[in-house]
Design a protein around this nucleic acid. Structure first.
Length: 750
DNA sequence: CAGAGACTCGAGGAG
DNA sequence: CGAGTCTCTG
């Protein structure tokens, strides 16, 4: 086929780019995946060997889709299509011994790593109330994303007691990971860079191999991922990155928008190509998206346009509460299916956080709307599944103390916390993995009669380990499920919950059987690796005729004919945290998330907000989101309880309706619009915030300290309404902007 | 000292 | 609303 067929001039330019760096700014729905896959095909048509090509995506699903489309275009090929994490795992499995790990290493998920961090805090005798494990985990994650090792964190933040405590925890945490022969998610990237730095020969090997590198969703890369790409690209820098700064929504986990904004600085001769023609949505939807995103100050100017004129107006429903909102979603879908011949799979409901899915689920169940949820408590994160996985992990890597501690007493075998503590103490004192405590039970103090139980447990584990040497994954799993009595106990408990958990174990077993039938590498470590890297959205099936429910974050990269954006309320979306944050970028990130949501829709967009909502166990009264007000009124039609349009005129949102508090909601919205900084959600937070109007007591060039970022230099101070916008540059983090009235910016002596 | 039951506290987004 | 912690009992 002709690779340039049906492409617009900009797309052609991108596809035919061969040597040197290129940056493609690809707006939502602009045919980005098509450009990426055709460029791969184009390179191969020029006789570039396919094994020299590496394409990096963020999710397995995106990788799978790209893999499929490349295969479709050019048949048999050796293009390496992979996510950042699986790319790094594949490299580490082969070479990690060069930096002192064993290649049977375990990959810890967020839950595992939190357990280990708790252990560290305990060992360091740190008060969990004062230093919550989650805060420590967040700090450590941020350091890792920014590629800051423990030594550096420790020296850089020595002056800040709290940061120092977290830095010490970080240091111990890394030591324990090594002892456990385990890596967390961030380490997968970090250790790959360590490896490349420690072993130039290994790096060269991969540079020679990956002569052409393509990176999708480049706006979501963090410092560590940037370095992986940068190291691999090397001098030749045949690096082709695609992204959209307006869709950068992962700042909270270290994604650095500067990677895409500064690409042309990093690679001086980079070619830049902009794709602004949208092939997905109607003009009405794009107008709404453009109108919202243009409120962001920090962005490259860009305007999506389409040949699909007009389209249905955006429908807005103001619900009484979250149940009313969910009912609106359900009945609108049902009438679309019944009256307009739509499929359930044409619909998606997108929300800001997973907790919001519950009300919608309830409404769908009572009205028999078929649906599927992505995210929330995932299958592989259920306690019973994690227990079975923990057994498998210990079999694969007995040094994995986190998993071992998890299963010592699961199912109950009379080994309590006190006994585990004694074993842990022995292990910590002798600097050995927990498993070795079992081999020297006589030396562990104060075990008494419990030693017999431990011996029995160890014998059992050893038998599994022996079996794993010759047996298959399913054989080992069957032995575990059977001989530990795990499933038997659940069945004996005979409650609806325990029976459902037993069923989950059966389902997990059949997943293992699937793996054995389909996977090339059928080893236990390969199975565990696949489990670790699986993401929810990977299970997304286009074919099933069900409504999709997912977070806005998960929806990126997908599209649906009809999309519901629910919960457009101040304090929910944008989130409370982003509004009170001292970093003005966080509200802009919420706005980008809104932009992502709007642009998922092909034909029609439905937006809703609720007057009241159960949040955190109590009823909250949120005012409508500022994002709602940013959509021009002429694009919106308001719907009533019977799904009729209210008035024939395009709606004026809430102007005429008076809320229960007696305050006109229009007034509430305006209050939000006019003084977003001090009032939202009908509550007044002014008391918590220092009075504005005060000129900062520092000047350009001064050193200042901020809680979250540490010490930086003031680059600019600009008046912004009643407040001042302060630009501060941080070493290694670059420039960030703050509102001086909101942020606790402290001047420090030079 | 293990296990069950009462109790409190905290709650974003993800590979 | 659920996990983690506290308290009581055997």
């Amino acid at each position: 086929m002709d690779l340039m067929e049906m492409l617009n001039p900009m797309q052609k330019k991108a596809v035919s780019h061969t040597e040197g760096p290129a940056l493609v700014i690809a707006g939502a729905g602009s045919g980005k995946t098509n450009v990426l896959t055709r460029r791969v095909a184009y390179l191969i048509s020029l006789k570039k060997p396919s094994f020299n090509i590496l394409a990096i995506t963020f999710t397995n699903k995106a990788a799978k889709e790209m893999r499929g489309r490349i295969d479709e275009l050019i048949g048999n090929n050796d293009v390496w299509v992979s996510t950042f994490h699986s790319l790094c795992v594949r490299i580490l499995r082969r070479h990690i011994s060069e930096i002192g790990f064993d290649n049977s290493f375990t990959i810890y998920d967020a839950d595992d790593s939190l357990r280990l961090i708790k252990q560290c805090l305990k060992d360091l005798d740190v008060n969990e109330k004062q230093f919550p494990p989650k805060s420590a985990a967040y700090a450590i994650g941020a350091w890792k994303d920014a590629l800051i090792p423990p030594e550096l964190a420790s020296s850089e933040f020595a002056g800040d007691y709290r940061q120092k405590q977290f830095a010490d925890t970080y240091e111990l945490y890394q030591r324990k990971l090594r002892l456990n022969n385990a890596l967390d998610f961030d380490d997968l990237i970090f250790k790959t860079i360590d490896l490349f730095r420690a072993s130039p020969a290994t790096l060269q090997k991969y540079r020679d191999r990956f002569r052409y590198i393509l990176v999708d969703e480049y706006q979501d890369t963090n410092a560590a991922q940037y370095h992986v790409v940068n190291l691999l690209a090397g001098e030749t820098a045949n690096l082709f990155v695609v992204g959209d700064d307006d869709q950068s929504i992962y700042g909270w986990r270290g994604a650095d928008i500067r990677n895409i904004l500064d690409f042309q600085k990093d690679y001086e001769n980079a070619e830049m190509i902009k794709l602004e023609q949208n092939y997905r949505s109607t003009q009405m939807i794009l107008d709404a998206a453009n109108a919202v995103i243009k409120n962001n100050k920090r962005r490259r100017p860009k305007l999506l346009w389409t040949h699909k004129p007009g389209g249905s107006p955006i429908c807005y429903f103001r619900a009484e509460n979250e149940r009313d909102e969910a009912a609106f979603v359900a009945r609108t879908i049902l009438s679309g299916v019944k009256d307009e011949g739509k499929n359930f799979s044409d619909f998606a409901a997108l929300y800001r956080n997973n907790a919001q899915s519950r009300a919608i689920e309830d409404a769908f169940m009572t009205r028999s709307v078929p649906y599927r949820i992505y995210g929330g408590v995932r299958f592989y994160e259920r306690a019973e599944i994690k227990d079975v996985i923990a057994y498998l992990r210990v079999v694969n890597n007995p040094r994995d103390s986190v998993s071992l501690a998890r299963i010592i007493n699961a199912p109950r075998r009379g080994v309590g916390d006190a006994t585990i503590d004694r074993l842990s103490l022995y292990a910590a004192r002798n600097d050995v993995p927990l498993y070795e405590a079992f081999e020297n039970l006589d030396d562990v103090e104060g075990l008494g009669a419990r030693a017999a139980k431990l011996v029995k447990f160890k014998t059992l584990m050893d038998s599994f380990i022996t079996l794993a040497k010759s047996g298959s994954v399913t054989e080992v799993m069957e032995a575990i499920i059977d001989q530990t009595g795990y499933k038997r106990e659940l069945l004996a408990e005979n409650t609806p919950e325990s029976l459902s958990r037993a069923e989950n174990i059966d389902e997990f077993f059949s997943k293992a059987a699937d793996f054995e039938n389909t996977s090339g590498d059928k080893s236990l470590s390969s199975f565990l690796e696949e489990l670790s890297l699986i993401a929810d959205i990977d299970g997304y099936e286009r074919d099933a005729n069900v409504v999709s429910l997912m977070t806005l974050h998960s929806s990126k990269g997908l599209e649906f004919p009809r999309v519901f954006l629910v919960g457009l309320e101040e304090g929910l979306f944008p989130s409370y945290r982003s509004v009170v944050s001292d970093d003005i970028n966080s509200v802009e990130e919420e706005r980008r998330l809104c932009y992502v949501g709007i642009t998922r829709a092909r034909e029609q967009l439905f937006i809703s907000s609720a007057f009241s909502r159960r949040q955190h166990g109590q009823v909250a009264f949120n005012s409508p989101s500022r994002f709602l007000k940013e959509i021009p009124e002429g694009l919106i039609q308001k719907m009533d309880n019977a799904n009729n349009f209210e008035n024939s005129e395009p709606s004026d949102v809430d102007e005429k309706k008076t809320s229960r508090t007696g305050i006109s909601q229009y007034a509430e919205i305006n209050k939000v619009r006019n003084s977003i900084d001090i009032s939202f959600g009908g509550k007044n937070y002014a008391s918590a915030i220092p009075a504005p109007n005060q000129k900062p007591d520092f000047a350009v060039g001064d050193s200042v300290r901020l809680m979250k970022y540490g010490v930086g230099t003031v680059k600019n101070i600009a008046a912004a309404g009643a407040d001042y916008e302060v630009t501060v540059e941080f070493d290694g983090l670059g420039e960030k902007k703050f509102m001086s009235g909101l942020s606790k910016i402290k001047k420090i002596a030079k």
